Amino acid sequence: MLKNKHSLPVLIIGQGLAGTILAHTLDQAGVPFYLVDAPKTFFTSSYAAGGIFNPVTGRKLEKSWLVDELFSYLFPFYTALEKTLSSSFFHPMPLFRPYANEEMKSWLLERKEGIDNEYLRWTDEGVWVEKAGWLDVDSLLRCSKSYFQTKNIYQEIAIHPATDLKISGDVVSFQKQTYACVIFCEGYHAQQNNPFFGHLNFLPAKGELMKISSLEPSQEYILNKNGFLLPLGNHEFKVGATYRWDDFSNQPSISAQLDLRNKLKSLGLNSYEEIEMSTGVRPATQDRRPLVGFHPHLPLAIFNGFGSKGVSLSPYFAHQWLAEWKAEGQINSEASIRRFYHLFST
């Protein structure tokens, strides 16, 4: 297997956010690869992502999981990638969380001393979160697609893993090319369509966003209160997001539209024009941890399950995936699919 790792390329299936970040990580490391992606009629979540990265989570303002490691890697990774792609898509921006009411303000202030305040700045009106921001995922994916096409390492085609991939020993063949490993980055589609990893603990969640234009809100920061208001420039904003676990269609719903209008009302925004709705299904998991690693018996791997935190999680875990592939380290045990090896038949 180690010999093949050094002499054969790897095949990445899926050019959503996860697959794109992994591909760039391999590209930077000089690892040969080929990337395939299904036509855009094959519904994906990445093009509808809010793209927010935020170092704190929940009403208790707790640090997000592995935030120090993630954010020390996140900023230089995306900054360097902008230079590689000669584009701008990484937008650090403060995030403001106004107190919901006086009761919540008192509740938080009573706990302030017990909270890790590294990323927080407290005011009378609310709490500012530093080192937050957003990634223009749509722009990143489009620029990356052009970059990979220019290098002749990209193809748009729908793959059916059970029939299109031929596994022989420690290699895989596809379209007369032999690969050392196939890496599945299919998002929530893996649960339905992947015979090798579909039995893992996926818990996909549909989300809907609204794009609006308005002269009222500030364009200098992200507003977060029972939802988010994300400035895109030119007085346009994304409003989000909704969660559903019983509908994975790619059609916007009236209920989500009403929900987002209510979020705008709670954010204090009254004058705006609705531009469009967008939908996506987050590749979330039951234990809220990614699915990263290698099949215990076959030359296959997975890079998936990042949920709504793909912008911050993907660069760090792409680095970890590569380190394990090169036998130079191991994937964090909470994210590694080793935690599910007991589910794989021998």
Rank of each mutant, 00 (worst) to 15 (best):
E156M: 05
E118I: 06
E113S: 12
D138R: 03
F148H: 12
Q149D: 11
Q155C: 07
V127G: 03
V129L: 09
E156S: 13
V137R: 01
G126V: 07
E125R: 12
R111T: 04
K112M: 12
S144C: 04
D116H: 11
Q149K: 11
I153E: 05
G114D: 11
I159K: 08
V137F: 07
D124H: 10
E130Q: 11
D124Q: 15
S146I: 00
R121P: 00
I115N: 12
I157E: 13
F148L: 01
I153T: 15
T123W: 01
Y147F: 13
Q155W: 07
Y154F: 15
I157Y: 10
G133M: 03
A158T: 13
I115V: 14
N152Q: 13
W134Y: 15
D138Q: 12
G126M: 07
E118W: 00
E125D: 15
G126N: 07
W128M: 04
E125A: 13
C143G: 00
I157K: 15
D116V: 08
W134A: 08
I153Y: 05
G133Y: 03
E110I: 11
V127E: 07
E130G: 09
L141Y: 02
K145T: 10
S139A: 13
K112V: 01
Y147E: 03
D138K: 03
Y119S: 07
F148E: 08
I157H: 14
W122K: 03
D136H: 10
E125L: 13
I157T: 15
I159F: 09
S139W: 00
E113P: 02
K131Y: 14
A158Q: 14
W122F: 13
W128D: 10
